[in-house]
């Protein structure tokens, strides 16, 4: 438990460096430190699927960001936004913290899941049902993948649609130059 907190503090420090570092290369590399630190935290939290995905996705995110930004005259943008915006964001942050503190008690305390809290209406949570009948009804030993591909396959289909749309948007934005050269129309 202390170990997880240490990793989270590490990610917070790395995120602060990533936000405040002046050179784009060092800030992108610090962003990578955030992702890898979180991936180790996921491993300690008992989620190996997510740790694998996080590592690989982080690598490709870094490659895309570096390819897109390095050598672009390089983005020496200093200074912050205007002062009223900072004050407004501070007020927003205070409101958000108040809401968070208010609803924090509704979550199960750390180290317990929603499965451990007794409920008054239903006899078991969805997670308990999935854990109990995953092997019997779907046949996969990995319960996360059982949920992903059978119990909640609609979510996965929607995810495929969202990924398709995002990629289509990126390609449409970049398309003209790739096919017709720098001038555009032809």
């Amino acid at each position: 438990m202390v170990l997880i907190q240490i990793f989270l503090v590490f990610t917070i420090i790395a995120a602060l460096i990533a936000v405040e570092a002046p050179s784009p290369l060092s800030s992108i590399i610090s962003l990578g430190a955030v992702g890898f630190g979180l991936s180790i935290a996921f491993l300690w939290l008992g989620a190996p699927d997510i740790a694998i995905t996080q590592v690989v996705v982080e690598i490709i995110t870094l490659v895309i960001l570096i390819r897109a930004t390095i050598g672009k005259g390089v983005t020496e943008v200093r200074g912050n936004e205007s002062k009223p915006l900072l004050i407004g964001s501070l007020i927003l942050f205070g409101l958000g913290s108040a809401f968070f503190a208010n609803y924090l008690s509704a979550f199960p305390e750390f180290g317990k899941t929603a499965m451990d809290v007794p409920m008054d209406v239903f006899s078991e949570t969805p997670s308990q049902y999935y854990l109990k009948f995953g092997l019997e009804k779907v046949g996969g030993a990995n319960v996360v993948n059982d949920i992903l591909l059978d119990f909640r396959a609609y979510d996965t289909l929607g995810e495929a649609t969202v990924l398709f749309t995002a990629v289509l948007g990126a390609i449409t934005l970049l398309n003209k130059e790739v096919f017709f050269g720098k001038g555009g129309e032809k």
Binding site: M1, F42, G46, A47, I50, F110, G111, T113, A141, V144
Partner: peptide
């Protein structure tokens, strides 16, 4: 993921 953590639990993968 922190919400789904269980103290001294295991990954949800059957052996």
């Amino acid at each position: 993921i922190l919400i789904g953590y269980r103290l001294s639990g295991e990954a949800p993968i059957l052996e």
